[in-house]
Design a protein around this nucleic acid. Structure first.
Lengths: 231, 231
DNA sequence: GCAAAAAACTGATTTAAATCAGTTTTTTTT
DNA sequence: AAAAAAAACTGATTTAAATCAGTTTTTTGC
């Protein structure tokens, strides 16, 4: 496989959150005692860039995005499916703030784990720490790929990336229901809403996808991969 | 300070490589025995994306870039000044390859640290591991900022970012000698060579910088910061 | 020191994608 | 069920930046 095929603007990393598998019984209890379970409605804010980060967030259910906000623009860094952490970079020593904002795409549930306890366990449990390191590395790789593709690929290739990511990594089905507006899907693909609509039309005309309402079905994976690869 | 001011396409992270300060005498010896010192000429390749990563690279002297290569384009992820690590993400379990390429900007010297030994020390020394986690977090933040700015800021703002980064973070002087061609500087700013030349001209005409050959002097930091901030 | 090559620069043109200005369709509210 | 609001869509226009096609300047090698 060539280098380029490895780069895509996919919105989720390969990282599985395995770190909790390495906890002792006491550590699990410690985390349980120092966590708060929360439910979020669709569209709610989970965390806000620049505010103090009192916890690391484990998304148990639902779907969320993490993003950076500018004056006019915002940039989606990644999508968080269930079983992933939000705010891992906030464990950084000497800067206990959230480094991005997060927002739910659908009704979601999360555990808010006290960040001090989280850091304490990192310092006392080497396997847990190693697992965190792995996740941070995976997150970096995902960001690198997305960075490259949003900077260099054209609209066509970017939409192909997103569709493949949704189908293969997030929903793991060729047909899925994506509860996002065109505006949100455009933001995710890093393009304007109008451009997104035009691209979707092209994909439909070329029989690459079928789309009815919020249901998307990938009809031609092979071609979609080629479009993703060649930009 | 508002969120936006925190985002820049600066090419170096704030991370200081402190991890080696936490080693025991034996661990230092272990690393010494399992490291190779190498000298690179200007323009040499330090590591190549996709190849096996037998070591983590500590840049002792010189200047390097790490970047992703596409078919036509390449994307500079960051600049590595002396005292920083290259290839830290390669410690990721189950994927011992380099996740980017690296190339020297000037004559440089590095220590190649055996990656197995490096990982062994992570697993046995919690403070070392915590320091690695810190560096990974800092690297992520730097990438986020650069990602946002290269995606959303215009040429003018991007060049301002790079100039500020070079002056304030890398050379730590208002006047510095940058041994890069226009082409390399353009690549660093994520724009075409012609665009870079036009932007430099604008900056000179507006008395923001002075430039003679490879010597750059920042004349108006305040304005440069404003340009960086407002894009 | 001169020729050749590379780098720096300039102006004109092209292009990809955003923006603008709408219309149509769908959803929500009353 | 009708009105209002929001979302989806369409075509025309604009714009930022790349590309193209050169010229001038600097560097390199013989």
């Amino acid at each position: 496989m060539n280098k380029l095929t490895a780069l895509n603007s996919c919105t989720v990393s390969n990282a599985k959150c395995l770190c909790f598998d390495y906890l002792t019984a006491e550590e699990i209890e410690l985390i349980d005692k120092n966590s708060i379970d929360v439910k979020y409605k669709k569209g709610e804010t989970i965390c806000k860039h620049g505010t103090i980060a009192p916890h690391v967030i484990y998304l148990k259910d639902g779907l969320a995005k993490i993003y950076l906000e500018g004056l006019n623009d915002s940039l989606i860094l990644k999508i968080i499916p269930p079983g992933n952490l939000i705010g891992l970079t906030s464990i950084l020593e000497g800067n206990n703030t959230f480094h991005y904002s997060s927002h739910t795409y659908e009704d979601s549930a999360a555990s808010l784990i006290d960040i001090k306890i989280f850091k304490q366990i990192i310092s006392q449990n080497a396997k847990f720490a190693a697992s965190i390191i792995d996740m941070l590395c995976e997150n970096s790789l995902q960001t690198f790929g997305r960075f490259f593709c949003l900077k260099h690929k054209q609209l066509y290739g970017r939409l192909a990336d997103i569709l493949l990511c949704l189908s293969e990594r997030i929903f793991k089905k060729e047909e899925f229901v994506l509860k996002l507006s065109r505006k949100e899907l455009a933001e995710l693909s890093g393009m304007s809403t109008e451009s997104l609509i035009r691209m979707i039309k092209k994909f439909k005309d070329d029989d690459i996808i079928e789309m009815q309402g919020k249901t998307i079905k990938i009809m031609n994976f092979e071609l979609l991969h080629k479009i993703s690869e060649y930009g």
